[in-house]
Design a binder for these strands. Structure first.
Lengths: 204, 204
DNA sequence: GTCTATAGCGGGATAGAC
DNA sequence: GTCTATCCCGCTATAGAC
């Protein structure tokens, strides 16, 4: 049946849109760019996705899911605290090399977006993860297994150490001049260092 | 003399351009936006700044200077190593609250910019700072005053911990829903925590 | 220096032929 | 489903009156 076959064109558009939106942003990408990069035309894009904003939302939601939701399972797991922290960090450092531009894309587009779009995201993604993390940390501090570090500071440090290296890659490669392959290797090696860094800093 | 008086219009345009470019990016900002936000018109903007790209470059260069060059004095200073690290971190946490959107602006626009612009920046800002930092760290490691941490990993961690909190503020306030004033207070308080975190993690 | 008018292009969206 | 043609708008840039 023609209806259930993937059209091919639709997938190509989605792929091209992903690359362009993620590397050049919403405002820096036009439907015409997407059409020519996917070897189709403007009418195809409009036919399958109605509007630029609608297509963008599909790409953005997937990116947001990768950056935030896929990691939440680790944080809400019942692993012992130190292992949970280690898993949290390693999960990011194993996931993000496949999507190195996602952290910059998501955080940057949230800054550029009008309130309407951001509100939609906020509604879909409540603070459950953050609350759960908060509970876990408070327990451990009470037990004395880690030194008393405010939840906000530890959480922000971990996110900083996991996401920033990927957000910095454009600067490192394009401005400082480190070859991309070399930077990627350095970041891959950075994972264990971040784990050590965090666990050492948490020792009572 | 009329020539040496600030025109007023020119300054208003610069101010409006700064706000718009920094919050909405190059592609998301039009000359018309800048003209109306500065209570002037398109011709004024063109008269004083010739082109959108030229005006952008002025704003970008200043932002780049704030983010990178103003801190370099600390790194190249002759302070004892631990004090230098502490000064480096505190300098960022004292400077960036005045320019909270600068880290995201600079790193994001570098990703979006064509090679031509990025090359210009790279030429102006060689890797001197990075080399100097590298020397300092290697000395300390040889002396045994800090544990042997690769230069790249420590440098990247410090940049991560100092810049990311500001890059994350849009997410925290708009998606997680933390009020901006509260987030700012948390980040202000975060400074000493980052210093402790880094120094603890460096202990031999 | 200031401002209007407009050129010339590229943007998103739409209509309708096939 | 596919594709061309086109509308209408906003964009940067320019010319030239005052």
């Amino acid at each position: 049946m023609t209806k259930s076959q993937p059209s091919g064109v639709k997938d190509r558009i989605l792929k091209a849109a992903k690359e362009l939106f993620i590397s050049k942003g919403f405002a820096g990408t036009s439907i015409r760019d997407i059409a020519s990069a996917s070897d189709s035309n403007v009418a195809h894009v409009k036919y399958y996705f109605q509007s630029k904003a609608n297509l963008f939302e599909i790409i953005f939601d997937e990116a947001f899911d990768i950056l935030i939701n896929r990691v939440s399972a680790t944080i809400t797991s019942d692993l012992p605290f130190e292992e949970m922290i280690e898993r949290w960090i390693t999960t990011y450092f194993e996931l993000l090399p496949h999507y190195p531009q996602i952290p910059m894309f998501v955080l940057s587009e949230i800054n550029h977006s009008p309130d309407a779009l951001v509100d939609k995201i906020a509604r879909k993604n409540p603070e459950k993860i953050f609350n759960r993390l908060s509970e876990r940390m408070e327990e451990e501090i009470k037990k004395g297994t880690i030194r008393p570090v405010p939840v906000f500071d530890l959480g922000l440090n971990i996110l900083s150490l996991c996401m920033f290296p990927f957000m910095f890659s454009g600067f490192a490669t394009r401005t400082v001049g480190i070859p991309r392959s070399e930077y990627n290797a350095l970041v891959a090696n950075h994972k264990q260092h971040v784990v050590d860094f965090v666990l050492r800093a948490l020792k009572p």
